[in-house]
Simulated assay, not measured.
Amino acid sequence: MIANLSIRRLRRVPIASILFLAIFLLFILVPLYWMAMTSIKPSDDYLAVPPVWFPANPTLVHYGAALFAYRGLTGLLNSVIISTAATVLSAFLGTLMAYSLARFNTGGQHLSFWVLSQRFLPPIAIILPIFLIYRGVGLHDTHIGLVLAYTVLTLPVTVWMMYAYFRQVPRSLEEAALVDGCTRWQALWRVAVPLAVPGIVAAAVFAFIACWTEFFFALLLTSRNAFTLPTVFRAFIGFQGALYGESSALSVVSLVPSIALGILVQRHLVRGLTLGAVRG
Rank of each mutant, 00 (worst) to 15 (best):
F215W: 14
S6N: 07
G280Q: 13
G199F: 03
A177P: 03
L221I: 08
A177G: 07
L195N: 15
N57V: 10
I130E: 13
S223C: 00
F233Y: 14
L132G: 01
A56Q: 12
M37F: 04
V193D: 04
W114K: 03
V147Y: 01
L10P: 00
L220N: 14
G138V: 03
V252F: 10
L67F: 04
I124D: 00
N78Y: 00
G94M: 08
G280T: 11
Y244T: 02
N78T: 00
M1E: 09
Y46E: 06
Y63P: 01
I126Q: 02
R11K: 14
R267S: 12
H62I: 02
L67M: 09
G64P: 00
Q109C: 03
V88N: 02
L264R: 05
M37D: 04
W185E: 13
M35W: 02
G280K: 12
L5Y: 01
I7E: 11
W189C: 08
M162A: 03
L219R: 07
A187P: 05
S43Q: 13
L250G: 03
V253W: 11
A3P: 01
A48V: 11
G199D: 03
F215H: 14
F216L: 13
E174S: 06
G272E: 10
V169R: 11
I130M: 14
A56R: 12
A242T: 15
I124V: 14
I263D: 00
A177S: 14
I263H: 00
L148K: 06
A202E: 11
S254K: 06
L255S: 15
Q186C: 12
A242K: 06
T84E: 03
G238C: 11
A102P: 06
V61Y: 03
P58M: 05
A69E: 12
R71K: 12
V270M: 08
L96Y: 10
A65D: 15
R184S: 11
F68G: 05
V80M: 11
A203P: 00
L220Q: 14
F27I: 03
V232Q: 09
V201T: 08
S6R: 11
T274D: 02
V256N: 04
